[in-house]
Design a protein around this nucleic acid. Structure first.
Length: 421
RNA sequence: GGAGAGGUGUCUGAGUGGUUGAAAGAGCCGGUCUCGAAAACCGGUAUACCCGUCAGGGUAUCGAGGGUUCGAAUCCCUCCCUCUCCGCCA
């Protein structure tokens, strides 16, 4: 959420930013609502000041044994008017707040202008795309042959997109999770095991509501949301809290299952592990000082990249353009791993700066050493990494002509086996 | 799930309708004292919003939301959370 005052004072800037994201703005309606709101506040507070004054006077009169009936009667009309104004103010503020929640974050100046994914900039590529003198197969063929992931039984038990991981398939994934968490710990992220269902306020805090409600599974009876990413509980961990400046940056790594409805995304890119309703992910979350948040974004990206390098998976880094960035971010990098069996890139991480957008919704501040006053922190997060697509990439990258899979060396201490056959 | 107790400022903890944004103590910051420190003493020590160029003024906030009242931390209702006991249970 953007600051109302900021919008008031920088209306043109905000409008341009929203336009760059390819969205329609409702800034004029917001400004109008804001003006109405302030007018009501002024009138209401004036009357309340009067009421307080008279009430104090009545108290004194009663103490002195005087009859205050006449003065009390006089306050009747004031009381009614205050009620009217409060009611109107409440309605006005609710409307305004709703509008405010639909305003997207505005892009950082370093973000390239663009409308579609084609306008994203590929800024870095690492590793050689694997080639072989035999036909490289997509991971789902290898998986089926090896019997390490079972999609059909998953469908029977839960539905499409909820696979079982079996034997070495399960162990490989577990090894990756531990590897990711250990690496994160080495880089100063504190491990956090989080709830995987959250209440409405939390979903609102990180911006899934109202923008992306259809993304989530809802346990309606208990009014709980299944998390689409650990970002939600981990960032909300510090909701309504104030850090000391010297505590920053605060960094967490959270491993959780993630649930996404993926409504309307049926098509060619959903085969195998490419797109699931439930998947595992290690998420990195940072709370940082506003002055360094873009540096922190770079190191966050570096932390995620490092994992792919250690696994020996070729990948590229995309700097997302204004139009493909999403509602809450000011700047975002995607890491895409190369899947040689499919001859395509798979997104395995998304590293974003939200500046104060989430911090405002969640009221997360730090006490500035300079001013002694609380200011909003900047929040960042990035996957480190999303599991199924990494598994897919490993299977395709490390496949042998016989359809076996060699386990990347860094995982050997975790898997205790070196080949899946 | 049942029965009971309770939620007050950074913390401990007073306060059951009328200068209570809220006693007192602790902590923290500043000052006096000291060669310096400790102790002692003095002063300060919330957040948000509105008006105002500033100085400053105002409103709201004692778990959350409603209600009663001229006036609510204090009375009533609903919800949330914590603790104790019972039941159930990985």
């Amino acid at each position: 959420m953007l600051d109302l005052k900021f919008i008031r004072e920088n209306a043109a800037l905000v409008k341009n930013g929203i336009a760059a994201k390819g969205a329609d703005d409702n800034i004029d309606a917001i400004l109008e609502g804001d003006e109405k709101r302030r007018a009501l506040i002024q009138e209401g507070e004036g009357l309340k000041a009067k009421r307080n004054e008279v009430s104090a006077q009545i108290g004194k009169m009663k103490k002195a044994g005087e009859d205050a009936a006449a003065v009390i009667k006089e306050m009747d009309s004031v009381k009614i008017r205050i009620q009217e104004i409060d009611e109107e103010l409440k309605v006005t503020e609710e409307k305004l707040n709703e509008l405010l929640l639909t305003v997207p974050n505005i892009p950082h100046p370093s973000v390239p202008q663009g409308k579609t994914p084609d306008d994203n900039q590929s800024i870095f590529e690492w590793g050689e795309k694997r080639t072989a003198d035999f036909q490289l197969r997509p991971h789902w063929e290898i998986i089926e042959k090896l019997g390490i992931i079972d999609f059909e039984r998953g469908s029977k038990v839960s539905g499409a997109g909820f696979p079982f991981y079996i034997g070495k398939g399960a162990m490989l994934q577990r090894a990756l999770i531990n590897f990711f968490l250990d690496q994160a710990a080495e880089r100063g992220y504190k491990e956090l095991q989080a709830p995987i269902v959250v209440n409405e306020e939390s979903a609102r805090g990180t911006g899934q509501i109202p923008d992306k409600e259809d993304l989530m599974y809802v346990a309606a009876r208990d009014n709980l949301y299944m998390i689409p990413t650990a970002e939600v509980p981990v960032t909300n961990f510090h909701r309504k809290e104030t850090f000391e400046e010297k505590e920053l940056p605060v960094k967490y790594a959270g491993y959780t299952p993630c649930f996404r409805r993926e409504a309307g995304s049926y098509g060619k890119d959903v085969r195998g592990l490419n797109r699931l309703h439930q998947f595992d992910k290690v998420e990195l979350v940072k709370f940082v000082h506003p002055a360094v948040s873009y540096d922190e974004l770079e190191t966050l990206r570096g932390d995620a990249e490092r994992l792919l390098q250690l696994l020996g998976l070729s990948y590229r880094v995309l700097l997302m353009c204004t139009g493909d960035m999403g509602f809450t971010q000011t700047k975002k990098y995607d890491l895409e791993v190369w899947a040689p069996g499919q001859q395509r890139w798979l997104e395995v991480s998304s590293c974003s700066n939200f500046e104060t957008f989430q911090a405002r919704r969640m009221n997360i501040k730090f006490k500035s050493r300079e001013t002694g006053k609380p200011e909003f922190v900047h929040t960042l997060n990035g996957s480190g990494l999303a599991l199924p697509r990494v598994v897919a990439a490993i299977i395709e990258q490390y496949q042998t002509p016989e359809g076996k899979v060699v386990v990347p060396k860094v995982l050997h201490p975790y898997t205790k086996f070196t080949i899946i056959e």
